[in-house]
């Protein structure tokens, strides 16, 4: 419990400190150089600039350097010709038709000139870029409410706090401001000495959770994003118990089980970080996600650690099952670059 409080306090202080730093950045923003974007239409696709989600508000496009555009377009051979258009370094000859998509360099902010000529936005999001996004690393605190009374074996509260890290990559971008990012991560949980079963001198629950996730986020404002997230993974859980009294016996149980989380939340980050191209900018922020975890219940079986010298067969009781499903809240502090 003390450890949990310290973790929460540390997180609280870290977030406050980060808040101050972000505020300072907001007060004096450093504008990254705006790359140029050129929109073309009706020309066979040969080269194209990197793409990101189109801004929700109309914005003008800026010409993009031909070399970079060609490189990006080569990585997207399947893009429909009507979506991405090569410029071949040619200057803009005519404004695009009203039904032409907007193509924006990944991690670039929209410019006024592009928006001025922006076509009518497509109703359905269309993928406009892939494999050219930002990398996101995060330190996460995932809190799962263990509403099962049996959890009181390990903790006096209902909450199970998992600390971990995750890394994500903005894999797919869609117009309309949507980005899909796969993630990989790990978290660790540890709880011990709850008020139930005081005849046990040791009650320890430890778990390692390895997961993959897909996060679909949408930029709401330059500093705010909303997202949905689907996570699946495996949990390695170990329970160690020991009796008390004159003879102390050790018991241990291991369990491997899949677990899934579905959640949605908000990202608050340093503003305008996406104006810079990948690798040239750094965004800091935090995520707040509420969701629900689904996982099979953990069987709490008393399995003797040592059985040497045992001549009579032993039937050990179990402590029932510990539900591992429940609502969860994930707090994360991340850096995206």
């Amino acid at each position: 419990m003390n450890m949990k409080f310290e973790i929460k306090s540390t997180l609280f202080l870290a977030v406050l400190a980060f808040s101050g730093a972000s505020h300072a950045q907001t007060a004096a923003p450093v504008e990254p150089p705006e790359p140029s974007v050129v929109l073309t239409d009706g020309v066979p696709s040969a080269v194209a600039p990197p793409a990101v989600a189109a801004p929700a508000s109309p914005a003008s496009a800026t010409p993009v350097p031909a070399e970079r555009a060609a490189t990006t377009a080569a990585a997207l051979p399947n893009d429909p010709p009507g979506v991405l258009a090569p410029t071949s370094g040619a200057p803009k000859a005519a404004p695009p038709p009203s039904n032409a998509p907007r193509v924006i360099a990944l991690n670039e902010a929209p410019s006024q000139s592009l928006d001025a000529d922006a076509p009518v936005k497509s109703k359905t999001p269309r993928m406009i870029s892939a494999f050219k996004g930002a990398v996101r690393t995060s330190f996460d605190v995932n809190t799962v409410w263990d509403l099962d009374d049996r959890y009181q074996l390990f903790d006096s509260s209902d909450v199970n706090v998992r600390m971990g890290v995750s890394v994500g990559y903005d894999l797919l971008s869609f117009d309309g401001g949507w980005v899909v990012a796969p993630e990989l991560g790990w978290s660790h949980e540890s709880a011990s000495d709850g008020p139930l079963a005081p005849q046990l001198s040791q009650k320890e629950l430890r778990g390692d959770h390895f997961f993959g996730a897909f996060r679909a986020r949408h930029t709401v404002a330059s500093w705010l994003e909303g997202f949905g997230r689907l996570q699946g993974g495996m949990a390695w859980t170990r329970v160690d118990l020991a009796s008390s009294g004159a003879s102390v016996d050790q018991y241990s149980t291991d369990d491997k089980a899949p677990e899934f989380q579905l959640g949605a939340g908000l990202v608050v980050r340093t503003p305008d970080a996406e104006r810079a191209p990948p690798g040239e900018s750094l965004a800091l922020g935090f995520t707040l996600e509420a969701g629900y975890q689904v996982a099979p219940a953990l069987k709490l079986k008393l399995e003797r650690v040592a059985t040497e010298g045992q001549r009579i067969s032993v039937l050990t009781s179990d402590l029932g099952t510990l539900s591992r499903s429940g609502p969860c809240l994930r707090l994360g502090v991340f850096a995206r670059f």
Partner: peptide, 27 residues
Amino acid sequence: IQRFFSIPCLLALGVSACSSSGAKENP
């Protein structure tokens, strides 16, 4: 932006407040 940073902090504190303790078992 500090207003937004206060959200997770409040939630983190809320986690503690919402977590209830079960009946304590005696030796």
